[in-house]
């Protein structure tokens, strides 16, 4: 029991959150193993993004605890959680659109190194920060766009910048909220490749709608419905699960 708990990178216990009468997290017990390739799926409005917000501290839970490496981080601020390695990307691209790609990543690296609040020196005077940011862009194949403002990039490229910014924070646990959302399927391949090549020591939670993508990337799947975990298991088991089919077919029928 204790050993099992110790091997989880991230864990939630009895996590609850409601907006008025709407429960978006209803006592969620969730475990993300070290180096996991774990997907969280579920119909629209199931509470997936809210779950990410709770884990990263953007939302305060009504009840329950969040553990990182077995340590309770529930009372910590977003910034403190990032310092401990919990990093997220956004379902709807959330970047500094007027700044260059390189600057977006530089800001992240600089916060990670604790020099984001320096008041006594000019911004950009630490070359090693820019070097590191650029190296990251090279790794993701974004270096050609390094000096372009984010808003000039195609949406698919912007999704990659989201990931680059997250990697600039050296995550231990990375929560990708629908990384390919809004990207035409012709471009989503690059994103999937990028995710596949992420370092294996990062525990990865991918929230995704696209089932092909989920089955390609995930080795373990949790299905969330109406703020509750419906079922968890290996991809084949989930694919075969009657309840999951019903949820998804039901949704398709509605859509």
């Amino acid at each position: 029991m204790t050993e099992a708990a110790a091997s989880a990178a991230l864990e939630t216990r009895g996590l609850c959150k409601s907006f008025g009468a709407l429960a978006v997290a209803n006592s969620i017990d969730f475990r993300l193993a070290r180096g996991a390739r774990h997907a969280l799926i579920g119909p629209n409005g199931a509470g997936k993004t809210s779950f990410v917000n709770l884990v990263t501290g953007a939302l305060q839970p009504n009840d329950g605890r969040i553990l990182l490496d077995g340590a309770d981080i529930t009372p910590l601020s977003q910034a403190q959680r990032v310092k401990r390695g919990i990093v997220r990307t956004f379902q709807i691209t959330t970047l500094f659109r007027g700044l260059t790609v390189l600057e977006n990543v530089t800001l992240a690296v600089s916060e990670r190194l604790g020099s984001g609040g320096d008041i006594h020196r000019p911004a950009g005077s630490r070359r090693h920060i820019i070097d590191e940011a650029y190296a990251l862009l090279e790794r993701l194949g974004l270096h050609d766009d390094a000096l372009r403002p984010v808003k000039e990039l195609a949406y698919g490229r912007q999704r990659l910048v989201e990931i680059a910014v997250a990697l600039g924070l050296s995550p231990k646990v990375l929560l990708l909220d629908e990384p390919a959302a809004g990207v035409p399927s012709s471009e989503s391949g690059t994103i999937v490749d990028t995710i596949e090549r992420l370092p294996t020591d990062i525990a990865l939670l991918i929230i995704e709608h696209d089932m092909d993508l989920v089955f390609r990337l995930a080795r373990w799947i949790t299905v969330l419905v109406a703020g509750q975990i419906l079922v968890e298991g290996a991809p084949q088991a989930i694919a075969a699960d009657a309840r999951v089919r019903q949820v998804y077919l039901g949704e398709r029928a509605h859509a």
């Binding site: 910034a79 310092k83 320096d118």
Partner: peptide
């Protein structure tokens, strides 16, 4: 000096996109 320092840049960052600044671990309130 302040507005051209990393601190000043982060202030602009907070103004432009607070959620992003939180997500890169910036102590926004402070």
């Amino acid at each position: 000096r302040i507005v051209h320092s990393p601190f000043g840049r982060s202030l602009t960052g907070i103004r432009e996109n607070e959620a992003r600044m939180h997500a890169i671990g910036s102590p926004v309130f402070r």
